[in-house]
Design a protein around this nucleic acid. Sequence first.
DNA 1: TCTAATAAGGACAAATTTGTCCTTAATTAT
DNA 2: ATAATTAAGGACAAATTTGTCCTTATTAGA
Lengths: 151, 151
Amino acid sequence: MIKINLMFSKATEYALRATIYIAQTTTEDNKCSIDDIARAIDSPVSFTAKILQTLRRDNKVIRSVPGPNGGFYITDKCRNKPVRAVLDVMGEGQVLEKCVLGLHKCSGTNPCPMHNQYKEIKEQLIELFDSRTIQDLADDINKGGKFLKSR
Amino acid sequence: MIKINLMFSKATEYALRATIYIAQTTTEDNKCSIDDIARAIDSPVSFTAKILQTLRRDNKVIRSVPGPNGGFYITDKCRNKPVRAVLDVMGEGQVLEKCVLGLHKCSGTNPCPMHNQYKEIKEQLIELFDSRTIQDLADDINKGGKFLKSR
DNA sequence: TCTAATAAGGACAAATTTGTCCTTAATTAT
DNA sequence: ATAATTAAGGACAAATTTGTCCTTATTAGA
């Protein structure tokens, strides 16, 4: 049995991929369904449905309407949010700040032995998730050569 | 309820801290006990015991002997292994290679939209865990100003 | 050899994460 | 209004991770 964890929970990985897919394929007038999304990002349908509920909470990331021609979509305002917004709504916003060795309080004044070197990497990670927007990543896919599932 | 996951499992975090503590405080003639370790790294005793069993497997990272004056210690050979060795024995050696979006096969030929930028960060992470040795980190602590638990 | 000290190991329990299924609610089109 | 379509939401189940506890094995020393 091989381990494959890193960085984010499965739920957050699905959330990131789903959000990017929604940004890539929908407008307010052209929504997509749970089934579309799960197929496109290669995720379990029912679990994905749960995650989409979280993503739409308070309209922070995506929106949805039920009924015929309903489904999920994203507003222009949300498209332009940093990817970090997805982490936040999934409750993993602080993940990028965490200590590699798991100290509850690891900082310049109480550093773990990895702190100083890891800090620089951490800053790049934070910059990456704060500077790239959801739309940004969707555009990458539409330009071609980038994917949301393995082939 | 706040989330605090990142990067490694709790088990691996404890494993890293425990190994560093053992390198910091023991020699073949001066071992330390499970209780010492759990106290020093602020981890649950019984769970730590389990993790230590894994770490000593095949003498890959640490060694142990039961009985009076027994306990855990590390050989010079193992001290000088990269921290990556701890990840390997904990079954998380591949963690650093993983895709941030969770694609099973994310690579230059099948990249996720984060791949290119994340690759550079990933390389630094790998370099960090491959270049720093266990003893290295233990020395940091002995020099003072670095810690294995929060104060 | 006996006892004490210590780790090894198995069985189990609790907590969390991942996932499914079914019913209800909302929306649209007829 | 009614029917069809779709998401919302709750209850539950499975899998994994985290953690505990108890018994056994090993070692050292008296």
